[in-house]
């Protein structure tokens, strides 16, 4: 099987994640979509690692996971804080910082 199929799958998942970020208003769901995009990237990294025959891609994917974990922690804390003050997790309602 052509290993490029993994990359195509990765592209599809990334695009779906992007659509999710753009159309969903619930901050938590948006966050999940971001995670999906990160996972799609990880899949691509793992595939690259396999195509090139070295482990560097896997290591990068590992770092992506770590950073994603950190991001989730801080991001969810921010969402909690916003929810506490605005009683809403909709990103559209947090739109005061504008023109």
């Amino acid at each position: 099987m052509n290993p490029a199929n993994y990359l195509y799958l990765s592209a599809i998942l990334f695009s779906l994640g992007a659509v999710g970020v753009l159309v969903r208003r619930n901050a938590i769901v948006m966050f999940m979509c971001v995670e999906l995009m990160l996972n799609a990237c990880n899949l691509a990294f793992v595939s690259f690692s396999r195509i090139n025959g070295n482990l560097d891609g896997q290591v990068i994917a590992f770092f992506v996971m770590v950073v994603a974990a950190a991001e989730v922690v801080v991001g969810l804390a921010i969402i909690m804080t916003i929810f506490r003050t605005r009683r809403s997790a909709s990103v559209d309602e947090a739109n005061l910082l504008k023109y």
Partner: peptide, 14 residues
């Protein structure tokens, strides 16, 4: 041009 800064995070993401 100012109007493009509409405060919606999703627009920025777009």
């Amino acid at each position: 041009a100012r109007r493009t800064q509409n405060g919606f995070a999703r627009s920025y993401a777009l």
